[in-house]
Design a protein around this nucleic acid. Structure first.
Lengths: 164, 164
DNA sequence: TACGATCTGTATGCATGCTGTCAATATTGC
DNA sequence: GCAATATTGACAGCATGCATACAGATCGTA
């Protein structure tokens, strides 16, 4: 195990939650919102462990979306992956700084920053893809195939309800 | 619907994901890690909508843990709810600034900041509790009782595997 | 008892994330 | 054609989160 998020991880080892909390527990440890928070924490740590520090989950999602939707503006990109317009700016900044993404103005609409992936960006994406897929597998590792299918189906159901 | 996270929420409405993405989609929209990320986003937005801006999810969890574990230091508190030692400091700062939490040194171990909840903090906690419970319910609203049980069980299974 | 290992809180730096605001630019209604 | 409106990207501000490093304090042990 790498040192990513070592403190929070070690900390979690010291709590008895998640393995034996009793039915009378009214604290945060019984709340789905807290589960999701901790799962997000786990997923980010796994991503760092498997993919490495050169690409964050957010940057991967953005790079992926840019590759699949060439010529989109920042707002359109944010819409695609559910980010905020204010957040995506900094993400693109960092991807641009690495030379993986290029901004170019649009002649038709001078407000837009048309985004495109560079060859280096393509290479980085291809390099990271296997590890990213491995993360998804490790994440759901303790679930059997039926449970995985059910988990993903319920996640999609929740997202469709709250976002759709 | 309140205006919390309006931009990302409106953005999400414009994407066809989560309702009709085809089986050949290799993008981020098929990845459990991305689902969890979006669910976390939804949960935070629901929390803001139901509880209000005076208490964040993180602050609620911390306040809750302090109320249940009086006399714990910051590191112990962080371990209880899975935060980082470096993060909890700022959270406590803000709770202390609101007058809901008090720091006091320990005579036995002068490194420790013993944490305790104030009467105002107790009141804030009691005020927020119903809304926080409502958030959990709204979050899993689209799932029937069996699905909710299964979802929570699988979350706990995942967390026990990755943290335990 | 001295000393090294460990623990605690803090500070810094980086990366998300969201709110509110703003200027520039398009679009629409009249 | 022009005024009201909407959209876009940028910026400031606040709140997580984590890695790293540091100083003070404690603990285990030789």
């Amino acid at each position: 195990m790498s040192g990513v998020n070592e403190r929070a991880h070690k900390a979690a080892h010291r709590t008895p939650d998640y393995t034996s909390s009793g039915p009378g527990d009214l604290s945060v440890h019984r709340m789905p919102g807290h589960f999701i928070r901790r799962l997000q924490q786990v997923a980010v740590r796994l991503f760092g462990d498997c993919v490495g520090p050169e690409l964050t989950p957010v940057q991967y999602a953005a790079l992926c979306a840019i590759a699949q939707t060439p010529g989109a503006g920042q707002a359109a990109l944010a819409a695609l992956i559910g980010y905020d317009r204010a957040t995506i700016g900094g993400v693109i900044d960092r991807l641009e700084q690495k030379g993986w993404v290029a901004r170019s103005g649009s002649p038709e609409d001078r407000r837009l920053n048309l985004l495109s992936i560079t060859p280096d960006g393509q290479a980085a994406l291809a390099r990271a893809a296997p590890a990213v897929l491995a993360v998804q597998d490790k994440l759901l590792e303790p679930l059997d195939p039926q449970e995985r299918e059910a988990f993903e189906r319920m996640c999609l159901k929740l997202l469709a309800h709250h976002l759709g």
